[in-house]
């Protein structure tokens, strides 16, 4: 799946020299990274390292102070989440960004409601499409007409993932997608991540779970105090290397590439 990298096709996403300041706080400082189709790139780091900011800049939820983003080789100026979606960028947020009072179909189609010829909400079609999209991910999905506040964390995350799939994400950002989930639900999200990757979707995955990172990621990028302190193929590092980067911002002194992939 890393063929694209070798054939020299432009990456799905290329972020160059991204900066983000809040007053005196430098949340992101000159970070560059890229993402190819069908790969999962782990974005790792302490709380406050700037991971969410970097991803929010890519998803149009936040404007960078400076820096460039290219999608499929073409410059992409993400002024709003709406713009980002036009580039096929979908995001699954750490905080399960759903409207609690609305039901699953309303949440799945939020901001992109289906409408009839007369411009009215097409509730029937939204319900049937949502039912199909949700059942594909979880055959047991029930209570489609309940406010999502009454659903479990796993079911809520299924809605967020179904939203990305339904709208045919090319680039998926998962910001701690399992932070609010139990073990079996976490396993389900991991399965889905692999499935999406096989379909050629490029995924940025923010996670604190080392087991997940080594199971799912092809490459990792470690952030420390807003800086990119290391980007590696997953074969070239082990857990201790990554933890050292996360905590100290540097590799262990005796480090050399561990993999035999190059």
């Amino acid at each position: 799946m890393l063929d694209a990298m070798q054939t020299g096709a432009p990456p799905l996403v290329q972020m160059d020299n991204i900066y983000k300041q809040f007053g005196g706080i430098h949340a992101v400082e000159g970070v560059s990274t890229d993402l190819y189709p069908g790969e999962v790139v782990g974005v790792l780091g302490h709380n406050g390292a700037g991971k969410s900011c970097l991803m929010r800049i890519l998803s149009g939820a936040m404007r960078a102070s400076s820096g460039q983003i290219h999608v499929n080789g073409a410059p992409a100026d993400m002024k709003s989440p709406h713009d980002a979606r036009a580039f096929g960028i979908e995001t699954i947020y750490q905080t399960l960004a759903l409207a609690n009072h609305l039901d699953a179909p309303a949440n799945l189609f939020m901001g992109r409601e289906l409408r009839t010829r007369f411009g009215n909400l097409d509730e029937k079609r939204m319900l049937s499409e949502a039912t199909e999209a949700l059942r594909q991910l979880n055959p047991n999905f029930k209570n489609l007409r309940e406010p999502v506040a009454r659903l479990s964390g796993g079911q809520r995350q299924v809605i967020a993932i179904a939203r990305a799939i339904y709208f045919q994400a090319k680039i998926l950002i998962m910001d701690e997608p399992t932070a609010a989930l139990g073990p079996s639900e976490t396993a389900m999200v991991a399965d889905l991540t692999l499935k999406l990757k096989q379909e050629g979707i490029g995924i940025f995955l923010i996670s604190h779970d080392m087991a997940d990172v080594f199971e799912l990621c092809d490459r990792v990028m470690v952030m420390n105090k807003g800086r990119n302190v290391g980007a590696f193929r997953i074969e070239d590092v082990n857990k201790d290397d990554i933890l050292s980067l996360i905590i100290k911002g540097t590799l262990p002194d005796d480090w050399e590439p561990r993999g035999n992939s190059r």
Binding site: P81, H82, A97, N100, M110, N120, L121
Partner: peptide
């Protein structure tokens, strides 16, 4: 409120403004 997109957006914004914004609701 019940049948048009603007009504759905009014509910979305009131229910979770941040989620609505991130979902592309103006």
């Amino acid at each position: 409120l019940q049948k048009r997109q603007i009504g759905r957006h009014i509910f979305s914004v009131g229910s979770n403004e941040e989620a609505a914004r991130l979902s592309g609701v103006n």
